[in-house]
Design a protein around this nucleic acid. Sequence first.
DNA 1: GGCAAAATGATATTGCGTCTCAATCTCGCG
DNA 2: CGCGAGATTGAGACGCAATATCATTTTGCC
Lengths: 170, 170
Amino acid sequence: MDQPSLKAVLGQAQAFFSSKGLRFTKQREAVTTLIFRTQEHFRPEELCERLRKSDSSASRATIYRTILHLVESGMLREISLGGGERLYDPNFLKSPHHNHLVCVDCRKIVEFEDPNLDIMQNCITRRMGFSPTEKALRIEGRCDMLRLLGTCKNFNAAGKKGQRDKASKG
Amino acid sequence: MDQPSLKAVLGQAQAFFSSKGLRFTKQREAVTTLIFRTQEHFRPEELCERLRKSDSSASRATIYRTILHLVESGMLREISLGGGERLYDPNFLKSPHHNHLVCVDCRKIVEFEDPNLDIMQNCITRRMGFSPTEKALRIEGRCDMLRLLGTCKNFNAAGKKGQRDKASKG
DNA sequence: GGCAAAATGATATTGCGTCTCAATCTCGCG
DNA sequence: CGCGAGATTGAGACGCAATATCATTTTGCC
């Protein structure tokens, strides 16, 4: 699937909830919609704020609970940037094997796929006595090049500590 | 360097501090010693507790500050397991290129090195417009095999939230 | 000794996430 | 329709890690 429509995603969510004997309530639908409409990585608190600004609403507790459910359903995944930050990634539906490259300076995240890396990752995992999961791999780097090209404007939301004003422009 | 002696490590730390016009105080030495004596990954709060139990002492604030300094010096690195946990790794002095394999179930961490992976990692990093750093790469997996061998006893401390009682066995 | 800068530690504060629990909603049933 | 069980919600309390504040202490230096 290349770019599942929001409608399809909502259907999938609904199916998951009802398969668990849970209800796909107004609030859950609002949260799910918000998550999968923009398809951006997000922090839970961020999502709370976005939802507060929108017309629909749900309490923090409900938002957190819905996120957990969606993770359990496999539609959403937690990714970690380091720094103790918790991020969620709604893009595994469209590219189930992608990995993340994270800039150690500005926390920018780029997604990529690489079949060879997948193979090597599997080998290593097994070699060390682990079994591979569908879960992602994370590489850290520095997005200098991107920055040179002036692409590093569109960060990953953040807006907190990741801000280094020294890196202005080329 | 294969296994730098504690004395050498302390010397290095001292050098770093004085190069910055900072003092290598009793407290900082105590913290540094505690970190590099066992060479285990640790959580800051864990370290506080360990230090409290020892004969020497330092306040939480000082411990956190010292950790930051050591990270800045390059002697210590932050690694992330996901789940919003922040861990520090004192082992980059002896193996500067190692990576981490993390069990998604029990949070066990295994260190490994793989030159081929390093190469591929560099390629990908550059391809995506990033420049490689000395920083590590993290792979997630499931330590079933290890567990079969009964090796998974010696976790990585944890003992808190990682515990899913519902997911007992497959 | 005495000063200025650095360091410390007790405490307050923040941020994020979880838990609790009473009130509300929904569904199926008679 | 009215009922009851169970699911859901939301407000707020709570816990924990980490940071910030600031008065006090220590240190290096003259």
